[in-house]
């Protein structure tokens, strides 16, 4: 019976002219939309690789004119930029492992049924309430000040742990759909909760761990506001904050160039474009890996049932 209703292969159905017209229009609209997402990035890349003359004359579109690496040479020789990048890598190096451990050991108990954790309901409300209400910017700043984190790298790491509540939900939902028989067998064999978490759950949770690792790393790379308010000295600020500062101040880069040989191959626009592109580069590089996981992750986390 079911075979009777099987759809024939699409190629054997003769498409109507209206259908073909729609299909062409649809392709055009979607491809133009996709191009719109890429064109600004390509333009910035082209500007960063062009000579200052054509850039000032607005002749650079999507392809560099008067190709030169000078802007990038200036960026990699710029101690402020490099220091900011170092701060960014340091914060990611500290925050990602800490956040992962933090999230996993919190998600595990919360994924348990009430028979294993009688006070589960209370804990869940404790975390859930932070999704409903927050103290807001000023009191949060005062707490970071009161705990002595201002102008230390920990100001960018520890308060950020509170952002992990979303990832916790992701992980605990993943834990919950693992087969119960595995952990029950482990309990019967005498394993405790730590053993079950690290020997049974985690080896099975690579996809969700990969997802939250990448999410956390990208969030920390992009985060700029905490660097701006918690760091009083520019040398403590991460790259995103540094980029924001140079974009806002409109200072002439040529005044700050030590390497005199670069001056005629560089102007504000090309130097800025190069810095923007370098800051975006890590995201563009991890993006293909990110993409393998995030669709699944976001669906698990946001809408279920």
């Amino acid at each position: 019976m079911a075979q009777l209703f099987n759809r024939r292969p699409a190629s054997r159905i003769k498409a109507s002219p209206a259908r073909i017209a729609f299909s062409i229009a649809n392709h055009i609209v979607l491809i133009l939309g996709a191009a719109l997402c890429l064109v600004p990035m390509i333009h910035i890349l082209a500007v960063s690789l062009s000579s200052p003359g054509p850039v000032a004359a607005q002749r650079v579109g999507l392809w560099p004119i008067g190709f030169t690496w000078s802007a990038y040479e200036w960026v990699v020789g710029n101690p402020d930029f490099l220091r900011a990048m170092g701060v960014s890598f340091l914060r990611i190096g500290l925050a990602v492992p800490m956040s992962l451990f933090f999230t996993v050991i919190t998600a595990y108990p919360l994924s348990k049924e009430k028979k294993y954790l009688r006070t589960r309901g209370a804990y869940v409300w404790f975390f859930f309430l932070t999704m409903l209400f927050s103290g807001g910017l000023i009191p949060s700043y005062m707490i970071v000040l009161a705990t002595g984190l201002i102008d230390t790298i920990w100001a960018l790491v520890i308060p950020a742990l509170t952002w992990q509540v979303f990832n916790m939900i992701l992980v605990l939902n993943f834990f919950r759909q693992l087969p119960k028989s595995l952990e029950e067998a482990a309990y019967v064999d005498g394993a405790g909760h730590w053993m079950v978490l690290f020997r049974v759950y985690l080896p099975l949770s690579k996809p969700v761990i990969a997802t939250i690792t990448l999410f956390t790393a990208v969030t920390h790379w992009n985060s700029w506001f905490d660097g701006m308010i918690y760091m009083n000295f520019p040398e403590n600020q991460p790259l995103s904050t540094y980029i924001r500062n140079i974009l806002q101040t409109l200072e002439d880069v040529r005044l700050t160039i030590q390497d005199v040989s670069l001056i005629e191959f560089l102007n504000n626009d090309t130097a800025r474009a190069a810095q923007i592109f370098v800051a975006a580069l890590p995201i563009i590089l991890v993006y293909p890996f990110l993409q393998r996981y995030f669709a699944k992750g976001i669906i698990l986390g946001s809408v279920k049932g």
Partner: peptide
């Protein structure tokens, strides 16, 4: 970092 700011 979430509840003390509420008190704050």
């Amino acid at each position: 970092y979430s509840y003390l700011p509420m008190y704050g």
